[in-house]
Design a protein around this nucleic acid. Structure first.
Length: 200
DNA sequence: TAATGGATGTTCT
DNA sequence: GAACATCCATTAT
């Protein structure tokens, strides 16, 4: 399948967020290839969004978000977890889409090991354990701060391709999860009836 | 099934 | 010193 071009990522953040649903995200880390279809995302925008990391300007932590659309922004949270974003809109803006959940495609054995899921009992309801949340997704795909600042168009370790066509009628939206500011914005988007989504 | 609280460290006030 | 785009085990209902 074809990979998106720069212009795909430089559109309005809401547009990119919706169009990322159904795309296949692949990582190649530690000699292991893993991939999954993006089924849930959240949009974070530079203007009118107090919950966005860049709401108060550029800092050491968020500087990667000011790259051109298509760069990867990973941050460390709660002392033990990572969250992965894809930068959107043109160079210098500071917008991104948070990746919240994937439906596994390739390298499931590797993902199970990274998530420390071993017993058969646990593998029976994988959709509630493997990658249904931003930090679970990072663990499953082996994403950490080393990937922050990579260009998803050229990186050898993380890439994106079109995979499944998702129409507007298949996309639902609601408030973003885990934030205290700008909770009125319905900027979480997910694929309707997809069981790999973190919260329906 | 819902609610609570601990783990853990970086960033910003 | 508080907040934090989380997760999971434990406890209460």
């Amino acid at each position: 399948m074809q990979s998106p071009h720069r212009k795909f990522f430089e559109q309005h953040t809401i547009t990119v967020a919706q169009r990322l649903l159904g795309c296949k995200l692949t990582t190649n880390i530690g000699g292991k290839s893993t991939s999954g279809m993006i089924v849930e995302v959240e949009a974070y925008r530079d203007q009118g969004d107090e919950a966005c990391h860049t709401a108060k300007g550029k800092t050491k932590r968020n500087e990667v978000m000011f790259n051109a659309g298509g760069f990867v922004y990973v941050y460390f949270i709660y002392g033990m977890y990572h969250c992965a974003n894809i930068v959107t809109e043109p160079l210098g803006r500071g917008c991104a889409v948070l990746l919240r959940a994937i439906e596994p495609i390739d390298g499931i054995e590797t993902m199970l090991k990274r998530r420390k899921i071993f017993s058969d009992a646990k593998t029976k309801s994988l959709h509630t354990k493997l990658a249904n949340g931003p930090s679970k997704l990072c663990l499953a795909l082996g994403i950490n701060n080393n990937l922050s600042g990579h260009d998803i168009l050229t990186s050898q370790q993380i890439s994106l391709s079109h995979f499944q066509k998702i129409s507007k009628s298949q996309i639902l939206s609601g408030p973003r999860i885990g934030i205290s500011k700008a909770t009125d914005l319905n900027w979480r988007f997910w694929i309707k009836n997809n069981k790999w989504v973190s919260k329906q």
